[in-house]
Design a protein around this nucleic acid. Structure first.
Lengths: 156, 156
DNA sequence: TCCTTGTTGCAAGTTCATTGCAAATACCAT
DNA sequence: ATGGTATTTGCAATGAACTTGCAACAAGGA
């Protein structure tokens, strides 16, 4: 019996239910919905924290999904281009993390210095500040990144 | 004539005048003030923008200061440990930048997406927000990073 | 000036990420 | 359902930033 094939077919149906619009987004740019992209998207959907390429790779390995780390990177590249995924570069982590946009609001993160737990922050206090900065610097502000670090309740 | 030696001796005197407290900081932790550390510190002092290890290396090469890139990294490590230098990891640059603390106030940066110009921001709007976040998340907030990106006046 | 110990340069190694290319595969047309 | 073709994948190699091991060097106190 071919385990991989089983996952392919079941995974496909499952995903099309969860995110029926995603294949369209891909096809609209001449791309294809593949077994590996299904697997990555499904993982992102059920993952709460922003994940790194290596974490995606490891997790899929555990789930017996055959995928190469290179493919993970390429998939993230595509999903970023399509605007389906946000890339985060948290302070001094030395790697990139990714999270599904999927209609979520603009938000920031706080990360525990001990255990690495990353929690979403609901507020963004920077709307007014942005105008001030544009006046001060004469820049046209396009984006901002904000991140807090500290100790999570468990690690205090 | 030995250009390097000339720079060494003159550089030494110049630096001791500019920053008489630095050799003490080093010696207090059993470290030594060396020709290369002099050169790196002098460069940081006269540089306005946060600089990367490679930029430090290249600049010193141009100035005919003999130094290895490895030594630049090790020097930045020491200066960080002594609290004399801040390490910045700006969004999606994929490298670290450094700036002298030297009594400067807490501040953030804005970076031009086109030319890479980095400008200091004088305000930090996050003091009040931090308390709110501590209430919301039950974290103890230790630090934050904030960075804006956009288009500088030249590149608009 | 000597001696100890911290520092440097060189080479090699790590880690995260990208690229080239042949083989595999999605999926549209038939 | 099948075949054709353009996209995607895996493997191996490469790149970029940074770190580590070690012998030679040099700072600075005795």
């Amino acid at each position: 019996m071919n385990l991989q094939q089983g996952i392919t077919h079941k995974g496909l149906n499952l995903l099309l239910k969860l995110e029926p619009n995603i294949p369209k987004d891909l096809r609209a740019t001449g791309r294809r919905m593949t077994r590996t992209r299904q697997a990555v998207l499904a993982l992102l959907q059920r993952t709460r924290q922003p994940v790194s390429a290596n974490e995606i790779f490891d997790q899929l390995q555990e789930e017996k999904v055959a995928i190469d780390l290179v493919t993970v990177y390429r998939t993230m590249h595509v999903l970023k281009e399509l605007g389906m995924v946000l890339q985060l570069d948290l302070h001094q982590e030395g790697l990139s993390r990714y999270e599904l946009k999927e209609g979520r609001e603009h938000h920031h993160h706080i990360r525990c210095q001990i255990c690495g737990l990353i929690v979403d922050l609901l507020l963004c206090p920077l709307k007014k500040v942005t105008k001030l900065i544009e006046q001060q610097t004469q820049f046209i502000v396009d984006d901002h990144t904000l991140e807090f670090t500290g100790l999570c309740p468990q690690c205090q």
